[in-house]
Protein backbone atom coordinates (compact mmCIF):
# COMPACT_ATOMS: atom_id res chain seq x y z
CA UNK A 1 0.00 0.00 0.00
CA UNK A 2 1.56 3.27 -1.14
CA UNK A 3 1.18 5.89 1.55
CA UNK A 4 -0.43 9.09 0.31
CA UNK A 5 1.29 12.33 1.26
CA UNK A 6 -0.86 14.63 3.37
CA UNK A 7 -0.40 18.37 3.18
CA UNK A 8 -1.98 20.45 5.91
CA UNK A 9 -3.20 23.95 5.18
CA UNK A 10 -3.50 25.94 8.38
CA UNK A 11 -3.88 29.55 9.32
CA UNK A 12 -6.32 31.71 11.21
CA UNK A 13 -9.91 32.40 10.20
CA UNK A 14 -10.18 34.60 7.11
CA UNK A 15 -6.56 34.14 6.06
CA UNK A 16 -7.54 32.65 2.70
CA UNK A 17 -7.39 28.88 3.28
CA UNK A 18 -10.70 28.23 1.56
CA UNK A 19 -9.76 30.35 -1.44
CA UNK A 20 -6.60 28.32 -1.73
CA UNK A 21 -8.56 25.08 -1.47
CA UNK A 22 -11.08 26.26 -4.05
CA UNK A 23 -8.15 26.98 -6.33
CA UNK A 24 -6.84 23.45 -5.84
CA UNK A 25 -10.20 21.83 -6.53
CA UNK A 26 -10.75 23.77 -9.73
CA UNK A 27 -7.08 23.84 -10.64
CA UNK A 28 -5.26 22.73 -13.74
CA UNK A 29 -2.55 20.92 -11.80
CA UNK A 30 -3.28 17.46 -13.17
CA UNK A 31 -3.00 16.02 -9.66
CA UNK A 32 -5.73 13.85 -8.21
CA UNK A 33 -6.11 15.55 -4.85
CA UNK A 34 -8.39 14.46 -2.05
CA UNK A 35 -9.31 17.55 -0.07
CA UNK A 36 -10.76 17.51 3.43
CA UNK A 37 -12.57 20.75 3.96
CA UNK A 38 -13.77 22.38 7.09
CA UNK A 39 -17.00 23.80 5.83
CA UNK A 40 -18.61 22.43 2.72
CA UNK A 41 -20.74 25.52 2.39
CA UNK A 42 -17.72 27.73 1.81
CA UNK A 43 -16.38 25.61 -1.02
CA UNK A 44 -17.37 26.73 -4.50
CA UNK A 45 -17.51 23.69 -6.70
CA UNK A 46 -18.64 24.09 -10.26
CA UNK A 47 -21.73 21.86 -10.15
CA UNK A 48 -21.21 20.90 -13.75
CA UNK A 49 -17.90 19.25 -12.94
CA UNK A 50 -19.24 17.00 -10.23
CA UNK A 51 -19.20 13.41 -11.44
CA UNK A 52 -20.47 11.75 -8.28
CA UNK A 53 -21.54 12.26 -4.71
CA UNK A 54 -20.85 9.31 -2.46
CA UNK A 55 -21.91 9.95 1.12
CA UNK A 56 -19.97 13.08 1.92
CA UNK A 57 -17.36 12.71 -0.80
CA UNK A 58 -17.84 14.78 -3.93
CA UNK A 59 -15.76 13.65 -6.88
CA UNK A 60 -14.91 16.07 -9.64
CA UNK A 61 -14.23 15.50 -13.30
CA UNK A 62 -10.57 16.38 -12.85
CA UNK A 63 -10.07 13.49 -10.45
CA UNK A 64 -10.05 15.65 -7.35
CA UNK A 65 -12.41 14.88 -4.52
CA UNK A 66 -13.69 16.87 -1.63
CA UNK A 67 -14.95 15.64 1.71
CA UNK A 68 -16.31 17.52 4.67
CA UNK A 69 -14.67 16.74 8.00
CA UNK A 70 -18.08 17.13 9.68
CA UNK A 71 -16.71 17.46 13.16
CA UNK A 72 -14.27 14.60 13.08
CA UNK A 73 -11.22 15.20 10.96
CA UNK A 74 -9.46 12.01 11.92
CA UNK A 75 -12.40 9.85 10.86
CA UNK A 76 -12.72 11.74 7.58
CA UNK A 77 -9.02 11.29 6.94
CA UNK A 78 -9.31 7.54 7.33
CA UNK A 79 -11.79 7.46 4.47
CA UNK A 80 -9.05 8.63 2.11
CA UNK A 81 -6.28 6.53 3.63
CA UNK A 82 -5.10 3.62 1.54
CA UNK A 83 -6.82 4.94 -1.59
CA UNK A 84 -3.57 5.58 -3.48
CA UNK A 85 -5.35 4.17 -6.53
CA UNK A 86 -7.56 7.20 -6.43
CA UNK A 87 -5.66 10.01 -4.78
CA UNK A 88 -2.03 10.94 -5.13
CA UNK A 89 -2.17 13.79 -2.66
CA UNK A 90 -4.34 14.60 0.31
CA UNK A 91 -4.86 18.15 1.49
CA UNK A 92 -6.40 18.97 4.85
CA UNK A 93 -7.90 22.36 5.34
CA UNK A 94 -7.41 22.78 9.08
CA UNK A 95 -9.89 24.69 11.17
CA UNK A 96 -8.95 28.32 11.73
CA UNK A 97 -8.42 27.67 15.43
CA UNK A 98 -6.46 24.45 15.09
CA UNK A 99 -2.76 24.03 15.67
CA UNK A 100 -1.68 22.74 12.23
CA UNK A 101 1.14 20.73 13.77
CA UNK A 102 -1.42 18.69 15.71
CA UNK A 103 -3.53 18.22 12.60
CA UNK A 104 -0.52 17.19 10.50
CA UNK A 105 0.37 14.56 13.09
CA UNK A 106 -2.84 12.72 12.21
CA UNK A 107 -1.14 11.62 9.00
CA UNK A 108 1.05 9.26 11.03
CA UNK A 109 -1.44 6.64 10.20
CA UNK A 110 -1.73 3.53 8.03
CA UNK A 111 -1.88 4.42 4.33
CA UNK A 112 -0.80 8.01 4.84
CA UNK A 113 2.46 9.87 5.12
CA UNK A 114 2.84 13.24 6.77
CA UNK A 115 3.69 16.01 4.34
CA UNK A 116 4.33 19.69 4.65
CA UNK A 117 2.44 22.25 6.67
CA UNK A 118 1.32 25.26 4.68
CA UNK A 119 0.23 28.20 6.79
CA UNK A 120 -1.82 30.88 5.10
CA UNK A 121 -1.57 34.37 6.58
CA UNK A 122 -3.45 37.51 5.66
CA UNK A 123 -0.68 40.05 5.08
CA UNK A 124 -2.95 42.92 6.03
CA UNK A 125 -4.04 41.59 9.42
CA UNK A 126 -1.66 38.89 10.62
CA UNK A 127 0.45 41.27 12.66
CA UNK A 128 -2.56 42.55 14.59
CA UNK A 129 -3.89 39.01 15.04
CA UNK A 130 -0.56 37.89 16.46
CA UNK A 131 -0.99 40.50 19.20
CA UNK A 132 -4.66 39.84 19.88
CA UNK A 133 -5.44 38.92 23.48
CA UNK A 134 -7.59 35.99 22.48
CA UNK A 135 -5.84 34.53 19.46
CA UNK A 136 -2.34 36.00 19.56
CA UNK A 137 -0.63 32.94 20.94
CA UNK A 138 -2.60 30.68 18.59
CA UNK A 139 -1.68 32.71 15.49
CA UNK A 140 1.99 32.71 16.47
CA UNK A 141 1.88 28.97 17.12
CA UNK A 142 0.26 28.37 13.74
CA UNK A 143 3.02 30.29 11.96
CA UNK A 144 5.70 28.47 13.91
CA UNK A 145 4.41 25.16 12.53
CA UNK A 146 4.82 26.23 8.88
CA UNK A 147 7.09 24.67 6.28
CA UNK A 148 5.68 27.13 3.81
CA UNK A 149 4.02 30.45 4.61
CA UNK A 150 1.58 31.73 2.00
CA UNK A 151 1.00 35.45 2.40
CA UNK A 152 -2.37 36.40 0.97
CA UNK A 153 -4.16 39.64 0.22
CA UNK A 154 -0.89 41.42 -0.40
CA UNK A 155 -2.78 43.80 -2.67
CA UNK A 156 -4.83 44.90 0.34
CA UNK A 157 -1.86 45.28 2.66
CA UNK A 158 0.10 48.50 2.78
CA UNK A 159 3.88 48.34 2.38
CA UNK A 160 4.35 48.60 6.14
CA UNK A 161 1.84 45.77 6.77
CA UNK A 162 3.58 43.60 4.25
CA UNK A 163 6.99 44.22 5.74
CA UNK A 164 5.62 43.51 9.22
CA UNK A 165 3.93 40.33 8.04
CA UNK A 166 7.14 39.08 6.45
CA UNK A 167 9.26 39.82 9.49
CA UNK A 168 6.68 38.19 11.76
CA UNK A 169 6.59 35.05 9.62
CA UNK A 170 10.38 34.93 9.49
CA UNK A 171 10.63 35.33 13.23
CA UNK A 172 8.01 32.66 13.98
CA UNK A 173 9.06 30.15 11.34
CA UNK A 174 12.72 30.80 10.61
CA UNK A 175 13.20 27.76 8.34
CA UNK A 176 10.04 28.15 6.31
CA UNK A 177 9.73 29.31 2.70
CA UNK A 178 7.44 32.20 2.01
CA UNK A 179 5.36 32.97 -1.06
CA UNK A 180 3.02 35.82 -1.87
CA UNK A 181 -0.25 35.38 -3.67
CA UNK A 182 -2.75 37.79 -5.11
CA UNK A 183 -6.48 37.12 -4.70
CA UNK A 184 -5.79 33.57 -3.66
CA UNK A 185 -4.28 32.64 -7.00
CA UNK A 186 -1.61 30.14 -6.28
CA UNK A 187 -0.61 27.56 -8.83
CA UNK A 188 -1.19 24.22 -7.18
CA UNK A 189 1.48 22.51 -9.22
CA UNK A 190 3.97 25.08 -8.09
CA UNK A 191 2.68 24.85 -4.57
CA UNK A 192 3.25 21.13 -4.31
CA UNK A 193 6.51 21.35 -6.22
CA UNK A 194 7.64 23.94 -3.75
CA UNK A 195 6.63 21.78 -0.83
CA UNK A 196 8.24 18.69 -2.25
CA UNK A 197 11.41 20.57 -3.09
CA UNK A 198 11.67 21.57 0.50
CA UNK A 199 11.13 18.02 1.60
CA UNK A 200 13.80 16.78 -0.79
CA UNK A 201 11.38 14.90 -3.03
CA UNK A 202 11.92 16.99 -6.16
CA UNK A 203 14.71 19.23 -7.38
CA UNK A 204 14.50 22.66 -5.83
CA UNK A 205 12.55 25.33 -7.62
CA UNK A 206 14.56 28.00 -9.30
CA UNK A 207 12.48 30.90 -8.18
CA UNK A 208 12.51 32.07 -4.62
CA UNK A 209 8.75 31.87 -4.60
CA UNK A 210 5.83 31.74 -6.92
CA UNK A 211 5.61 34.88 -8.95
CA UNK A 212 2.00 35.89 -8.76
CA UNK A 213 1.97 36.85 -12.44
CA UNK A 214 2.86 33.34 -13.62
CA UNK A 215 -0.15 32.03 -11.78
CA UNK A 216 -2.56 34.21 -13.70
CA UNK A 217 -4.45 32.52 -16.47
CA UNK A 218 -6.99 33.65 -18.95
CA UNK A 219 -10.14 31.67 -19.55
CA UNK A 220 -12.69 31.46 -22.26
CA UNK A 221 -16.13 29.89 -22.21
CA UNK A 222 -17.80 28.38 -25.27
CA UNK A 223 -21.51 27.57 -25.08
CA UNK A 224 -24.01 26.01 -27.42
CA UNK A 225 -27.59 24.79 -27.22
CA UNK A 226 -27.01 22.06 -29.77
CA UNK A 227 -25.59 18.57 -29.29
CA UNK A 228 -21.97 17.96 -30.16
CA UNK A 229 -20.11 15.24 -32.03
CA UNK A 230 -17.95 14.03 -29.19
CA UNK A 231 -15.30 12.30 -31.31
CA UNK A 232 -14.76 15.47 -33.34
CA UNK A 233 -14.50 17.39 -30.10
CA UNK A 234 -11.97 14.91 -28.72
CA UNK A 235 -9.78 15.48 -31.76
CA UNK A 236 -9.98 19.26 -31.37
CA UNK A 237 -9.25 19.22 -27.64
CA UNK A 238 -6.38 16.76 -28.03
CA UNK A 239 -4.83 19.01 -30.66
CA UNK A 240 -4.92 22.21 -28.61
CA UNK A 241 -1.51 23.84 -28.10
CA UNK A 242 0.54 23.52 -24.88
CA UNK A 243 -0.39 27.02 -23.81
CA UNK A 244 -3.85 25.64 -23.06
CA UNK A 245 -3.41 24.15 -19.61
CA UNK A 246 -6.91 23.07 -18.86
CA UNK A 247 -10.17 22.26 -20.57
CA UNK A 248 -13.28 21.25 -18.70
CA UNK A 249 -16.89 21.06 -19.64
CA UNK A 250 -20.19 19.28 -19.85
CA UNK A 251 -21.27 18.25 -23.27
CA UNK A 252 -24.57 16.82 -24.59
CA UNK A 253 -23.83 14.27 -27.27
CA UNK A 254 -27.35 13.70 -28.55
CA UNK A 255 -29.90 11.03 -27.55
CA UNK A 256 -30.08 12.60 -24.05
CA UNK A 257 -26.56 11.56 -23.06
CA UNK A 258 -24.06 13.86 -21.43
CA UNK A 259 -20.34 13.58 -20.77
CA UNK A 260 -17.77 15.40 -18.70
CA UNK A 261 -14.92 16.59 -20.86
CA UNK A 262 -11.63 17.12 -19.17
CA UNK A 263 -8.11 17.88 -20.27
CA UNK A 264 -5.27 18.43 -17.83
CA UNK A 265 -1.79 18.60 -19.30
CA UNK A 266 -1.92 16.31 -22.30
CA UNK A 267 -4.47 13.89 -20.94
CA UNK A 268 -7.97 14.13 -22.34
CA UNK A 269 -10.73 12.23 -20.64
CA UNK A 270 -14.38 11.93 -21.53
CA UNK A 271 -16.60 10.37 -18.89
CA UNK A 272 -20.32 9.67 -19.12
CA UNK A 273 -22.42 11.56 -16.58
CA UNK A 274 -25.51 10.22 -14.90
CA UNK A 275 -26.55 12.77 -12.31
CA UNK A 276 -25.33 15.90 -14.03
CA UNK A 277 -27.58 18.92 -14.22
CA UNK A 278 -29.62 19.09 -17.37
CA UNK A 279 -27.58 20.58 -20.16
CA UNK A 280 -29.07 20.61 -23.60
CA UNK A 281 -25.96 21.70 -25.45
CA UNK A 282 -22.47 22.20 -24.12
CA UNK A 283 -20.48 24.50 -21.92
CA UNK A 284 -16.73 24.28 -22.17
CA UNK A 285 -14.23 26.30 -20.19
CA UNK A 286 -10.74 26.68 -21.61
CA UNK A 287 -7.91 27.95 -19.44
CA UNK A 288 -4.65 29.03 -20.95
CA UNK A 289 -1.63 31.11 -20.23
CA UNK A 290 -2.42 34.79 -20.20
CA UNK A 291 -1.98 36.34 -23.66
CA UNK A 292 -1.85 33.02 -25.45
CA UNK A 293 -5.52 32.16 -25.61
CA UNK A 294 -7.18 32.85 -28.97
CA UNK A 295 -10.94 32.97 -28.36
CA UNK A 296 -11.91 33.34 -32.02
CA UNK A 297 -9.85 30.35 -33.04
CA UNK A 298 -11.36 28.25 -30.21
CA UNK A 299 -14.93 29.22 -31.11
CA UNK A 300 -14.28 28.24 -34.70
CA UNK A 301 -12.78 24.89 -33.81
CA UNK A 302 -15.54 23.99 -31.34
CA UNK A 303 -18.27 25.26 -33.67
CA UNK A 304 -17.16 22.82 -36.32
CA UNK A 305 -17.94 19.93 -33.93
CA UNK A 306 -21.68 20.56 -33.75
CA UNK A 307 -23.94 17.78 -34.97
CA UNK A 308 -25.99 20.53 -36.61
CA UNK A 309 -24.29 23.66 -37.82
CA UNK A 310 -25.70 26.17 -35.29
CA UNK A 311 -23.31 27.97 -33.02
CA UNK A 312 -23.99 30.22 -30.04
CA UNK A 313 -20.88 31.52 -28.51
Amino acid sequence: MTPIPVTTIGGYLGAGKTTLVNGLLAGDHGLRIGVLVNDFGAISIDEKLIVSRDDDIVTLANGCACCSVAGDLAMALDRFAGRADRYEQIVIEASGVADPARIAALANSPGLSPGAIVVVADAATVRARARDKFVGSLVRRQLAAADLVVLTKIDLAGPADLKDARSLATAQAPGARMIDVLQGRVDAGDLFADIRARRGRLPACESAGVDAATSLFASHVWRTDAPVDIEALRTVVTGLPDSIVRVKGIVATGAGRRVALHRAGEVVSIDPLEDAPDTRGAEIVVIGRLGRLDATQLDGAFGACLLQSRTHS
Binding site: Y12, L13, G14, S95, V97, D99, D132, F134, V135, L138
Partner: peptide, 11 residues
Protein backbone atom coordinates in the same frame (compact mmCIF):
# COMPACT_ATOMS: atom_id res chain seq x y z
CA UNK B 1 0.86 24.28 27.03
CA UNK B 2 -1.93 26.21 25.36
CA UNK B 3 -5.66 25.83 25.69
CA UNK B 4 -7.88 25.78 22.65
CA UNK B 5 -10.79 27.65 21.13
CA UNK B 6 -13.74 25.51 20.14
CA UNK B 7 -15.13 28.36 18.07
CA UNK B 8 -12.87 31.00 16.58
CA UNK B 9 -13.51 34.24 18.50
CA UNK B 10 -14.78 36.00 15.35
CA UNK B 11 -17.06 33.07 14.52
Amino acid sequence: HDGEWLMAPEA
